[in-house]
């Protein structure tokens, strides 16, 4: 169907705000990044020199950068998996509740309204080695809890905080996905002799696949990019470089250390990774997750 407009400029006017936002907040900075990634510039912008692909060569040969790739991969997979798995368990449990379902769901959704930096601070205080409420029981259990010095513990902390914040969102989608599965299918499976666990893995989980896959895409992007605030608030990328993800490193190198060329090259690489990842996932969606 072709829409008709009373005035020939009206359609352009209507899409203008969206175009303006994309231009100002994506295409302009992306173009800037592309431009800067082939330049070498001193921190004060007094001297600029064209260096070709030298920034990229240096970044990709830098052990700190490769470490950051590893940290990012581990952090992203763990965060996406943990937040989705916990959300799914909670959503399945919520289905079983008979009374107070709405109340329980509302409570589950609240953490999503908490800003990233505040969520980070919350976890930081709870697990602060000297006065954290939850650090104390950890100590009592005999764990030498010190995320300020221990890289693995710091990683666990940021993964916990990042997952916790995303559980609400995933929970919401899983609840909706579970509700879309006809009850009679579960009943038919029960009559067909499938126990609770078998019913879940052979009927419910496969039918949730579209939801799960959508969430996988969203959570991967979330873990890669939207967790900057949490990492900044909780560990600042430390101790050492143990929680420095790619996004955090772009910020640190560009805005703290003022290595603008290197930072720009990193953000260009990051852009390529995201485009590739998303394209891969969307092709996968169209091909694999389909039924009905």
């Amino acid at each position: 169907m072709r829409a008709t407009f009373p005035h020939r400029f009206l359609p352009y006017l209507l899409v203008a705000p969206q175009l303006a936002i994309s231009l100002i907040f994506f295409y302009w900075p992306a173009g800037q990044a592309l431009h800067q990634s082939v330049l070498r510039e001193d921190p004060f912008g007094l001297k600029t020199q064209f260096v070709g692909l030298a920034n990229f060569r240096r970044v990709l040969g830098d052990p700190a950068y490769l470490n950051s790739v590893q940290v990012t991969a581990f952090f992203s997979v763990a965060t996406a998996f943990l937040s989705m798995a916990i959300a799914l368990v909670l959503a399945v449990q919520a289905e079983k509740i008979l009374r107070g379902k709405g109340f329980y769901r509302t409570l589950m959704i609240w953490p999503y309204a908490v800003a990233a930096a505040i969520a980070g601070m919350l976890w930081l205080f709870l697990f602060n080695p000297s006065f954290g409420t939850l650090a104390y029981p950890l100590r009592q259990m005999g764990i030498a809890w010190d995320p300020l010095l221990n890289g693995n513990q710091a990683m666990a902390l940021v993964i916990g905080a990042a997952s916790w914040k995303q559980i609400s969102y995933n929970f919401l989608f899983f609840v909706a996905g579970l509700q879309a599965i006809p009850k009679s299918l579960i009943e038919a499976a029960a009559i067909d002799g499938a126990g609770r666990t078998r019913r879940f893995w052979t009927i419910v989980f496969p039918l949730l696949a579209p939801t799960t896959f959508f969430l996988l895409v969203v959570n991967t992007v979330y873990a890669l990019f939207d967790t900057f605030g949490i990492i900044h608030a909780v560990t600042g990328g430390g101790p050492g470089k143990s929680t420095e993800t790619l996004v955090y490193k772009v910020y640190n190198d560009g805005f703290v250390n003022l290595q603008l060329g290197s930072s720009a090259a990193q953000s260009v690489i990051l852009m390529v990774i995201v485009i590739a990842l998303t394209a891969f996932q969307f092709r996968y969606i169209e091909r694999k997750v389909h039924y009905g």
């Binding site: 006809p182 009679s184 038919a188 029960a190 067909d192 039918l207 009905g292």
Partner: peptide, 20 residues
């Protein structure tokens, strides 16, 4: 007894076939 233990089979109004 659970539905599975009753040795019955049921045909549902919406058929309830497993779509996947």
């Amino acid at each position: 007894l659970e539905p599975a233990e009753r040795d019955i089979a049921m045909v549902f109004q919406n058929y309830a076939l497993y779509p996947h």
